[in-house]
């Protein structure tokens, strides 16, 4: 059973201080809210630009199914991410290469450590009320695109922080999150 072997590997990777709280626990904790809705604030800092691109809106998250990203400011746009595809408001598929980014985005929001573990080294710290997961790419090909990803949260993921090697940074804050019952 390869899955079991993964878990063993993962357990060994987890720092001693977090022994009581591992990725397994975290995944279970996140899975407790299968669907939720809330608001987001996204800030993109670009290295060759003095200012940053800020946007906000609402989101809807159905575990294992889809994420709907509803941009409200400064432009209206609805983006739907599923494991198979990303579609924008006009129903068109995303540009090439965007697919992999979308899949990654989905895996991060779901806390799908199994999938992430094949490409990233994961490090969990903190406790169940304030945890942090740091992800660093394993392979050089991915390291050219992503330097580091940090996730922070409690019962839900509250912060996502992604840095690229050329100095760009994407910060997403998720707030006003509330579970949905009718899914």
């Amino acid at each position: 059973m390869p899955f079991r072997r993964w878990w063993i590997t993962l357990l060994l990777l987890v720092p001693l201080s977090a022994q009581a709280f591992d990725l397994d626990d975290l995944q279970r904790q996140l899975a407790a809210t299968p669907s939720l809705a809330g608001s987001f604030e996204q800030q993109r800092e670009l290295a060759d630009l003095d200012s940053s691109l800020s946007s906000q809106g609402t989101f809807l998250f159905e575990r294992g199914k889809r994420v709907v990203w509803q941009l409200e400011q400064p432009v209206e746009e609805r983006i739907e991410l599923t494991p198979q595809a990303i579609t924008d408001g006009s129903g068109e598929n995303a540009p090439p290469g965007g697919e992999q980014v979308a899949q990654l985005f989905l895996q991060l929001l779901e806390g799908d450590w199994q999938a992430l573990e094949s490409r990233f080294t994961l490090a969990l710290s903190g406790d169940r009320d304030d945890w942090q997961v740091a992800l660093t790419p394993k392979e050089a090909a991915l390291r050219e695109r992503i330097a580091e990803i940090h996730l922070r949260g409690s019962d839900t993921i509250d912060h996502l922080d992604m840095r690229t090697p050329d100095g760009d940074r994407l910060k997403v804050r998720l707030f006003d999150q509330h579970p949905l019952n009718d899914s």
Binding site: Q42, R44, L46, D48, L49, L53, S55, W69, L71, P74, V75, E77, I79, L81, I86, D88, G89, A94, P95, P96, G97, G98, V101, A102, F105, L170, V172
Partner: peptide
């Protein structure tokens, strides 16, 4: 504009604000 703010896109406001290259590549 929508592209610049999409969480999954990789905006380049200086080099390619309109996303010329992505449009071209999607055709190949």
């Amino acid at each position: 504009l929508r592209r610049l703010f999409s969480p999954t896109a990789r905006p380049e406001p200086v080099a390619d604000p309109f996303g010329l290259l992505d449009a071209w590549l999607s055709r190949l």
